[in-house]
Amino acid sequence: MFRQAARQFTTSARRANLIADLYVRELKAFKPTPLTAADAQEATKPWKLPAAAKVPALEAEGADALAEYDSASVDVVAAAPANGAAEEYKPDDWFVFPVDEEPGHHH
């Protein structure tokens, strides 16, 4: 007469992850060896003072060498354009800003 309700629980089987299980097992089994003072000394190099700076060779030659360097001519070689026509080098052309027109003034 009385109906008895039964509760049903469902469980899913645990999926085995072989790689993760091996990784965790190896982590638990790892026992690091403690470092000794000799190990620390072996891993470092003793500190040495750096070598003193040397005077550059051009400055050691004197003012005559600097004046000769300043008066030397500068050789400029321009790369040939892809179309084969040689283009004349103009020193003022390398730093030219394009002129922007003001907005709203159409010619």
Results as ranks from 00 to 15, higher is better:
45 K>Y: 08
38 A>G: 13
54 K>A: 04
32 P>M: 04
57 A>T: 05
60 A>K: 01
43 A>G: 10
41 Q>A: 15
31 K>F: 09
38 A>L: 14
47 W>Q: 11
58 L>S: 10
59 E>L: 14
58 L>R: 08
54 K>D: 01
46 P>I: 13
46 P>T: 13
39 D>L: 05
51 A>Y: 02
63 A>E: 01
55 V>H: 03
38 A>Y: 09
34 P>W: 08
53 A>I: 01
32 P>A: 04
59 E>G: 12
62 G>F: 05
45 K>E: 09
60 A>S: 09
45 K>R: 11
39 D>I: 06
51 A>R: 02
53 A>V: 04
63 A>S: 06
42 E>A: 15
53 A>C: 07
48 K>T: 02
39 D>P: 03
47 W>Y: 13
48 K>N: 00
45 K>G: 07
37 A>G: 11
44 T>N: 15
54 K>C: 02
55 V>W: 02
43 A>T: 10
53 A>S: 03
52 A>T: 06
43 A>I: 10
38 A>M: 11
46 P>E: 14
62 G>S: 04
48 K>E: 04
51 A>E: 05
50 P>W: 00
38 A>F: 12
57 A>N: 04
46 P>R: 12
61 E>T: 01
47 W>F: 13
33 T>P: 07
58 L>M: 13
56 P>Y: 00
40 A>S: 13
59 E>I: 10
45 K>Q: 10
38 A>P: 08
56 P>W: 00
43 A>S: 12
52 A>K: 05
42 E>K: 14
51 A>H: 03
52 A>C: 08
44 T>A: 15
54 K>N: 04
31 K>W: 10
59 E>F: 09
58 L>V: 08
60 A>T: 05
55 V>G: 01
59 E>A: 11
35 L>Y: 09
62 G>A: 00
41 Q>L: 15
46 P>V: 13
44 T>S: 15
55 V>C: 01
49 L>N: 13
37 A>H: 09
34 P>T: 11
42 E>G: 13
35 L>Q: 09
53 A>F: 05
49 L>R: 14
64 D>H: 05
46 P>D: 12
56 P>K: 02
63 A>Q: 06
38 A>D: 15
47 W>T: 12
48 K>M: 01
32 P>V: 00
49 L>H: 13
57 A>H: 07
37 A>C: 10
58 L>C: 07
51 A>K: 01
35 L>P: 09
56 P>V: 03
52 A>N: 06
31 K>T: 14
36 T>M: 08
41 Q>T: 13
58 L>I: 07
43 A>H: 09
34 P>A: 12
30 F>I: 13
55 V>N: 00
53 A>E: 05
